[in-house]
Design a protein around this nucleic acid. Structure first.
Length: 837
RNA sequence: GCCCGGGUGGCGGAACGGUUUACGCAGAGGACUUAAAAUCCUUGACCUUAAUAGGUUUGUGGGUUCGAAUCCCACCCCGGGCACCA
């Protein structure tokens, strides 16, 4: 190996830091480029982690050269289960573990020569930081977007905490892989569903990968339909059902309610087979969602005997079933079953021998109709069609019928238009130590006062009235600090370990001054990452001030880079909080991240994920030691398309080192023409490269940008004597964002420039200089390449024909055959079409 | 089951209606060296041919087109997401 650049790299990193070349925030145009901040785990970084950071760094440098004020900060997401589990395993306090890990991560990152402004470094576990996490929570609470719930939630028996739906992977705990259970638990829940429509709508204007938008859209899961009221025969009770297929209602032959449905217990005296029903319900409630909804599972259910519901459209009496395939938390927890037109209902009806009645005819496939009508149905027809046997709606299309039927429902006050979302409210409490404490206390006295309505108007906030007894800590008393403890193991009882610290728990009520107890649950890991992109903007002297001027200056984030795995977690949560902050006018824009890019994974050479378990982890420290930071940076960008997963290759990085060595060798060892004659060929290649590299960086096609830089350099090497110094300087500028250390060394040390290359301006290309004067014309006969001839650029079809037809090869091929037509693509090719003999 | 993304040399990939295989890696041959490493030069899919040359080839099969890796239809395989949402 020619030269190890590590000393050089370190030298420049120090100088850049000292000169503060990345902290130029005075330019009028701003660019905020953000990485998804890492979780400082005990394992340290492997070469896959920095792939996104290299890209953002490259873009930061590129934008700076284009004259932008570039903000590129970095920080640590350090609360939550992984840090706490790591601490438990290694028997050190999470606070110590976190600071140790951060130190390690920072060292590793700094070796890459990234442009981070470390003055703005943030850490979600810093009380000064979580003061504002708590502040946002208070605002949510105050505005009635937080409620206490005692519903059974998902519980991980290994992590000993409740989880949100989003924390599951394949129905198992995303952190430890354990089978989860259901457990009734006191919970704080955020009303994320109140923002469902805004979250969905906001997606439209975002420059995000379509697949991520699609994932969020599916997660939000909007359906438009109708809610219909079914009366119960001989009873005051009613059942409301939600359907998106109102047009099929004449085919409804029974109703199904979830075991949790309130109707079931309220009318149990009228149910003749109650013991049987009760048994079924008990069993169903024990199951987790996975067991209940697992795809292999057969549908089961039990009829509520002696009870009938009345279909408001035809006054038909239909039986009612309890079945666990109906979900309690979606829609009304009850459905009208139309077995002829819904696969699930069809399956259930077939199993329990219930009538199947077709009311929609297929317009596309009449065979299907013949089968359905009269004869035995063997499959549900779930598409739209034409209504039959549907009273006055017969003959309408599904679309039209849905409209008319809703009108009819609304007129007769039997139902209405309704929109439902799959997304659920966010279970926001964890029964663990290592998280943000809630800024809430419980006061018996205030609870009583609220219940007895003995309070002054305006004394309690919306949230306090919604959750009687829960009182907000005042803003001036934030942060509520996480107490220092010796033992922080989760109790497993569903109570947080904080419960045992009576000194901390017992406090004074900020409202009435009476005795109060602190909330002992903590916030989930995602809380701190919900607003960290704002935190960078408002940090000053280790403290944070909600500085609206700074926020306005920088938001939204212009470019956000990170992994796809956050599609329905962090990226949805953060958008939710942001939209809330927008509504209370704490931020000036309604979406936080304008453009999003996902980096692909870097897999180990064996094609598996890098993991300690497989012993296939590649450490960037080693790569940097052997090949240098620039070679590693360049290689990670060159490997393949940025958003695609790709396997590491230890040979590949060697090639990059070779490329850099060649550059250094050439520039430091040879004299070049300081002034030379104008060389059009070189100018052309140079300007083509400027264009290509610029466009490729804009489009995240770093691999092809690098390859065009290689093409240019190969030519420089070959024809060195014809290149001018300025040509070489242009090449170095184009390479600078990719290989910042080497280019800086050459720029300042070898070429003797005073100012950093990273403060130079980005080269511009001249479109006129790109045009070629000659081109290689492809001559095809019947679409097959038969010859290549040199031709002047811009020639007409006639001229091209003459050139093509004078080619000996072509003459031979078409001799004696009739030319049917000639296709000419200017500056590219000519295709002679002849009749086949 | 549904929704995305992807199948191109020995390998990573490039080209997204017009030369398939840019650029890089690995390989082969050569130069330098006592030798090796490093470096530099040459080479570069497959089949037929002594060579010239011709033919085949972008997962498979069909279609549109003067011309398809690229557009359309059907199927196969790999990766990811969602999953009884009425």
């Amino acid at each position: 190996m020619f030269k190890n650049f590590n000393k050089i790299s370190k030298k420049w990193q120090k100088i850049w830091e000292k000169e503060g070349i990345y902290k130029n925030y005075k330019k009028p145009k701003k660019f905020y480029v953000l990485d998804m901040f890492p979780y400082p785990s005990g394992e340290g970084l492997h070469v896959g982690h920095p792939r996104g950071y290299i890209a953002t760094d490259l873009i930061a440098r590129y934008k700076q050269m284009q004259g932008y004020s570039v903000l590129h900060p970095m920080g640590w997401d350090a609360f939550g289960l992984p840090a706490e589990n790591y601490a438990l395993k290694h028997k050190i306090h999470p606070k110590i573990a976190v600071s140790k890990n951060i130190k390690r991560f920072k060292e590793q990152l700094n070796k890459f020569g990234f442009t981070y402004d470390w003055d703005r470094e943030i850490n979600t576990t810093d009380p000064e930081y979580y003061k504002w996490t708590q502040w946002i929570f208070l605002k949510l609470f105050e505005n009635g977007l937080v409620y206490e719930s005692f519903e059974p939630i998902i519980w991980c028996p290994s992590c000993k905490t409740g989880l949100a739906l989003e924390d599951l992977e394949d129905g198992k705990c995303e952190r430890c892989g354990s089978e989860v259970e259901k457990k009734p638990l006191r919970q704080w829940v955020l009303k994320m569903t109140a923002y469902a429509e805004k979250l969905l709508k906001g997606l439209e204007e975002l420059d995000w990968p379509e697949s991520i938008k699609e994932q969020q859209k599916n997660w939000i899961g909007k359906s438009q339909g109708a809610e219909i009221e079914f009366r119960i025969l001989n009873s005051k009770f009613k059942i409301n059902v939600f359907t998106t297929r109102l047009d099929t209602i004449f085919g409804c032959t029974y109703l199904v309610v979830a075991p949790e449905h309130e109707l079931v217990s309220s009318i149990k005296h009228q149910v003749s087979n109650w013991p049987e029903v009760e048994k079924y319900i008990k069993q169903a409630k024990k199951k987790t969602d996975l067991q209940r909804t697992g795809l292999t599972k057969d549908k089961t259910g039990v009829e509520l005997k002696s009870i009938k519901a009345i279909n408001p459209f035809n006054n038909e009496e239909v039986p009612i079933f309890v079945a666990d395939y109906v979900l309690p938390h979606y829609g009304t927890g009850a459905v009208m079953a139309v077995p002829a037109h819904d696969e699930r209902d069809y399956e259930f009806a077939t199993k329990y021998n219930l009538p199947i009645r077709q009311v929609i005819l297929s317009q596309i496939n009449p065979d299907f109709n013949a089968d359905l009508r009269g004869k035995k149905i063997n499959k549900a027809f779930t598409e739209d069609g034409i209504l039959v046997d549907s009273g006055k709606f017969t003959g309408m299309t599904s679309e039209k019928a849905r409209q008319e039927m809703i009108k009819w429902l609304e007129k007769n006050k039997l139902g209405s238009r309704k929109i439902n979302y799959k997304m659920r409210d966010w279970v926001f409490a964890r029964q663990r130590y290592w998280g943000e404490p809630f800024p809430l206390v419980f006061c018996e006295n205030c609870a009583k006062r609220i219940k007895n309505k003995k309070y002054k108007k305006g004394e309690f906030t919306k949230g306090e009235l919604l959750n009687p007894g829960w009182i907000q800590i005042q803003e001036k008393d934030l942060p509520v600090k996480l107490p220092e403890v010796k033992y922080y193991e989760p109790s497993g009882t569903g109570e947080s370990p904080l419960t045992n610290i009576s000194k901390w728990v017992n406090t004074e009520c900020p409202k009435c001054g009476g005795l109060a107890k602190r909330e002992t649950n903590t916030m989930p890991q995602w809380a701190g990452s919900n607003w960290y992109y704002v935190a960078y903007l408002i940090k000053k002297n280790k403290k944070y001030q909600w500085d609206k001027k700074e926020i306005k200056k920088w938001l939204p984030v212009d470019l956000y880079v990170g992994g796809v795995e956050h599609a329905t977690r962090h990226l949805l949560y953060a958008r939710f909080w942001h939209k809330f902050l927008y509504d209370i006018k704490a931020v000036p824009v309604n979406e936080p991240f304008k453009k999003l890019m996902n980096q692909g994974l870097i897999l180990a050479e064996d094609g598996r994920k890098m993991s300690k378990r497989w012993g296939n982890v590649i450490n960037p420290d080693d790569m940097i030691r052997i090949f240098g930071a620039d070679a590693l940076r360049l290689y990670e960008m060159f490997m393949g398309p940025f958003d695609q997963s790709i396997a590491w290759s230890s040979d590949g990085i060697r090639g990059m080192k070779r490329f850099l060595d060649r550059i250094y060798k050439l520039v430091s060892g040879v004299r070049y023409q300081v002034s030379g004659n104008k060389n059009e060929k070189i100018e052309r290649l140079l300007h083509q490269t400027i264009k290509k590299v610029t466009e490729d960086i804009e489009n995240f096609r770093f691999n092809t940008a690098i390859s065009s830089l290689m093409i240019l350099f190969n030519d420089i090497e070959k024809n060195l004597q014809t290149y001018k110094l300025t040509n070489l300087q242009t090449f170095l500028k184009l390479l600078a964002p990719f290989a910042p250390h080497l280019t800086e060394e050459i720029w300042r040390n070898v070429l003797g420039n005073k100012k950093s290359i990273h403060l130079e301006s980005w080269p511009k290309y001249n479109p006129k200089l790109i045009e070629e004067e000659k081109f290689e014309m492809i001559v095809q006969v019947n679409g097959k390449v038969r010859d290549r001839v040199s031709a002047p650029s811009g020639i007409s079809q006639k001229e091209a024909e003459n050139i093509a037809l004078s080619s000996e090869k072509i003459k031979k091929l078409i001799a004696g055959l009739k030319i049917k037509k000639i296709i000419f693509v200017p500056n590219r090719l000519i295709n002679i079409v002849i009749s086949q003999s």
